[in-house]
């Protein structure tokens, strides 16, 4: 998979700097939106803004209301109350003006399987003014599908459908690109390429709204994140900001593990995190056999090292590890399961 983002991809968004805090143009504004379906509250009053050039992560477990929210952003369903603006146009009142600035993939990139990739793109190009054949060829090149574009979509793999979906979304030079679980069906290499591709789109001024139930993905890709659970936003903020609310872990490795643990237990300000409460990336832990995970203020590390050394315990490694969003998430939702 090769997202070759050489030429300009989206609209060049002029970024008018509003006086004051230097905040840029707001591309998407969601204001106190609620949705009730058959008397059940699915979305309970969510609000957030996305600015130009921003990669905005929308994180929540399956069934938390992510897709319902996305469907409301693109006028597939109507909010029960509240308002959504895209580039200043209210989505429900002026759908043509608002949706002109949006490219999206809702859930899976479902295209007409009995048409070729090119015919699909032509179909969607006809639904919007100012998209000529050259533009179609351009988006095909951007997603690197030149050699399969004239095959029927039913012969495509999920990854190729995903790319065709992105090509479709880019056709109208959108200011906002909405991707729902975009890494589904991609291999690790594809995911990495997609991440770089998304970055390059954002650098050109496009805003991206990316939903996911995978924390690591959002953490790697996004500037800001909103966390949703049971139809409510638990937090909105920059990824670093949210993570800094939690202390870091300090991971120890000793030549004599049991002796080391005994000493650590004696120390004030140090608590050993039991295994079931650890929320560290498993791939990190796999590289640290016999690691002892503690939670402690960083300024106490020197004292602890001193105490351990005096007791004759050999320290083979010490490292500080930031908690993942997962821990943040579990703390916020108090145990709502995410992957």
């Amino acid at each position: 998979m090769a997202f070759a983002a050489k030429q300009p991809i989206g609209a060049k968004v002029d970024v008018p700097v509003v006086s004051g805090e230097g905040s840029s143009e707001i591309v998407l504004s969601v204001q106190a939106v609620t949705k009730k379906i058959r008397g059940r509250s699915i979305i309970r009053g969510i609000s957030f803004d996305i600015r130009a050039g921003e990669i905005f992560g929308f994180l929540g477990p399956n069934g938390s209301g992510k897709t319902t929210t996305i469907r409301m952003l693109v006028d597939l369903i109507r909010p029960t109350s509240g308002e959504i603006y895209i580039c200043g146009h209210q989505v429900q009142r002026e759908p043509e003006e608002a949706l002109r600035h949006v490219g999206c993939i809702v859930e899976n990139p479902e295209m007409y399987s009995y048409l070729t990739g090119w015919e699909n793109l032509e179909h969607f190009a006809r639904m919007q003014k100012g998209i000529d054949e050259a533009r179609i060829a351009e988006v095909v090149e951007i997603v690197g599908m030149d050699n399969r574009i004239h095959d029927k979509v039913k012969t495509y793999s999920l990854g190729m459908r995903q790319r065709l979906g992105i090509a479709q979304a880019l056709l109208g030079r959108p200011k906002l690109l909405i991707l729902d679980e975009p890494t589904n069906g991609l291999d690790p290499k594809g995911i990495k390429e997609l991440r770089e591709f998304i970055r390059s789109l954002a650098e050109q001024g496009m805003s991206l709204f990316i939903s996911s139930h995978l924390l690591s993905e959002i953490q790697l890709m996004c500037d800001r994140v909103a966390i949703i659970s049971k139809g409510e936003l638990l937090a909105v903020g920059s990824v670093e900001e949210l993570l800094s609310q939690r202390g870091a872990y300090v991971i120890w490795q000793f030549d004599d593990r049991e002796a080391g643990v005994r000493i650590l237990r004696e120390l004030e300000h140090v608590s050993i995190v039991p295994e079931h409460e650890q929320h560290i990336d498993e791939s990190v832990l796999a590289l640290l056999p016999g690691a002892v995970i503690t939670s402690m203020p960083p300024d106490r590390i020197a004292a602890a090292v001193d105490r351990l050394t005096r007791s004759g315990i050999g320290i083979t490694a010490i490292q500080k590890v930031a908690p993942t969003l997962e821990e943040l998430f579990i703390t916020m939702t108090e145990g709502d399961v995410v992957e």
């Binding site: 693109v74 006028d75 597939l76 759908p95 043509e96 003006e97 608002a98 949706l99 002109r100 949006v102 999206c104 809702v106 859930e107 899976n108 479902e110 295209m111 007409y112 399987s113 969607f124 639904m127 919007q128 479709q168 109208g172």
Partner: peptide
């Protein structure tokens, strides 16, 4: 049933 309606209705056409 094929889900293409999501692409069709999110284009800027009433």
């Amino acid at each position: 049933s094929t889900g293409t309606i999501k692409m069709l209705l999110t284009r800027p056409v009433r």
